[in-house]
Amino acid sequence: MLTDQVALVTGGSRGIGRAIALSLASVGANIVIFYAGNKEAAEQTVQSILEFGVKATSYQVDVSKKEEVDSAIKEIIASWGHIDILVNNAGITRDNLLMRMKEDEWDEVINTNLKGYFLCTKAVARPMLKQRSGRIINIGSVVGITGNTGQANYAAAKAGVIGLTKTTARELASRGITVNCIAPGFIKTEMTDQLDQELHEEWMKQIPLKHFGESTDVAEAVKFVASSSARYITGQTIHVDGGLLMG
């Protein structure tokens, strides 16, 4: 149980982030979500979280902007007292073949999907260091290991997340903070619905379990890593991918 703990989930209003927020709430955590722009979705998610009898709130934050991240996290600490769990999940895609990828498509994805993780991690590290405990969970992706046609930016960011995870895990380990990466394979979300049919079928052939995952499959793994049961696990990347990556 995560009773009375505060979990911050970035990109928590929709998709996998929403499933993670609900899953952590189901075991008693109070939830703060960061959302980029869809206020209505954020409010709906907050309502669903409240049904678990925990506290919940949302902040509109562009995670690639240091000032926005810092001021939101300061406010959370001021009003809620602590942040025990950070789930870095906010991400965007701007797919294009390398030869056609524009500089701003590269920058936007790196800024949100990699720099955003760094900024949120740094901002919560201070209160976590002081309380000598914490869980940082980074949502990666199988494409950070395998690469993916049309996703040079996204795959580079997700590979970067693994390096960030391991480094942060080493630096914060002596203070009781664990840092892990949960790397989904193919999960049914709005984001993966955008991929074309041919790619879908291509990936399906490579999934030993022969079906795409659900957001809740990822959320369950996050819930485990966030719990005290996972206290001896740090610096790891756990693949939630139906066996896709086992090679």
């Binding site: 201070r126 260091l129 002081k130 630096e171 002596s174 203070r175």
Partner: peptide, 10 residues
């Protein structure tokens, strides 16, 4: 180095 970061925060 982490002790020093810690100390500075305090």
């Amino acid at each position: 180095s982490l002790d020093i970061v810690d100390l500075i925060m305090e």
